[in-house]
Design a protein around this nucleic acid. Structure first.
Length: 201
DNA sequence: CACCGGATTGGCT
DNA sequence: GCCAATCCGGTGT
C-alpha cells in the first residue's frame, strides 16, 4: 500500500487534510514490532487564528517549532504529564497547521498493542482515544519531528478504504473550552458508526 | 526560580 | 459523574 507523499500534507487546507485522513492507515514499526490502525477520528488545528492551537498567534516556542516546519512530519507532545499526543504537521513551512489523530481502529499487531497497553487485545478501548492510541502504537515524544514520508518507523498509508462524505461526522473539538469562539468550530471529524472513535460520542 | 494548568485517562463513588 | 495522576512548557518574578 502506498505511503502518503509530502504533496498530500502540503496543501494549505488543513480541514480538508483532516477530513481526508479518515480511512487512511497509521503504521509504526519499532524493533520489528509492527502495528497498524485505520484512522477514524481527527481534529484540525490552524494557527495563527485558532485559539485552541499551541501556535495561536504564530507563537514560536521550543515546543511549537515542529509545527512551523515541513509538512508530513510528526508533532508529538506530552499532555497532562502522562499522555503522548500524535499530530501530523501540514501546510507550507512557517505555517503552523496540524491534524491531531484522536482514534484509530486496530488492524494488525493487536497482540503488541495489548502488551503495550497492559490490557486484553479484545478490549474496545485498545486505541479509541488520542492518549491511548499512541501508547498502543509505541509513539512517544522522542518521535517528535519524524518525517512520515521517508522514515521507516512511522508513516501513513492509503489503503484504498473509501469514505463517503455522508459517513463523516463534523463536531466541535474535544477539551478546548479555553479557546473561546474557536471552541465551537466543527473541526473534529469522525467516521460514522465506527466503535473505535473516542468519547464523547 | 516558582507557579499554573493542560488537544486525557481510568478508577472510584 | 468526579477527580487524581504526573510533568513539563510557558510565563512572570
Amino acid at each position: 500500500m502506498p505511503v502518503l507523499p509530502g504533496s498530500f500534507y502540503q496543501t494549505e487546507d488543513v480541514l480538508h487534510i483532516a477530513r481526508t485522513l479518515i480511512g487512511k492507515t497509521l503504521c509504526t514499526s519499532f524493533d520489528d514490532q509492527n502495528t497498524t490502525g485505520r484512522i477514524v477520528e481527527t481534529e484540525a488545528y490552524r494557527a495563527p487564528e485558532d485559539k485552541a492551537s499551541h501556535a495561536y498567534g504564530n507563537k514560536r516556542t521550543k515546543r511549537t517549532e515542529t509545527m512551523f516546519g515541513p509538512a508530513g512530519h510528526a508533532y508529538i507532545y506530552l499532555c497532562y504529564g502522562i499522555h503522548h499526543l500524535f499530530n501530523v504537521v501540514t501546510g507550507p513551512v512557517n505555517t503552523a497547521h496540524a491534524v491531531l489523530i484522536r482514534a484509530v481502529e486496530p488492524l494488525t499487531g493487536l497482540d503488541v498493542m495489548a502488551e503495550r497497553r497492559n490490557i486484553k487485545a479484545t478490549s474496545i478501548r485498545l486505541t479509541a482515544g488520542p492518549g491511548i492510541l499512541t501508547k498502543a502504537l509505541g509513539l512517544t515524544t522522542k518521535h517528535n519531528g519524524y518525517d512520515l514520508t521517508t522514515c521507516r518507523k512511522v508513516w501513513i498509508e492509503d489503503s484504498g478504504f473509501n469514505v463517503h462524505d455522508k459517513d463523516i461526522i463534523k463536531s466541535p473539538r474535544v477539551g478546548v473550552d479555553y479557546a473561546e469562539e474557536c471552541a465551537a468550530w466543527n473541526w473534529r471529524f469522525r467516521l460514522r458508526n465506527n466503535p473505535w472513535t473516542s468519547k464523547p460520542h
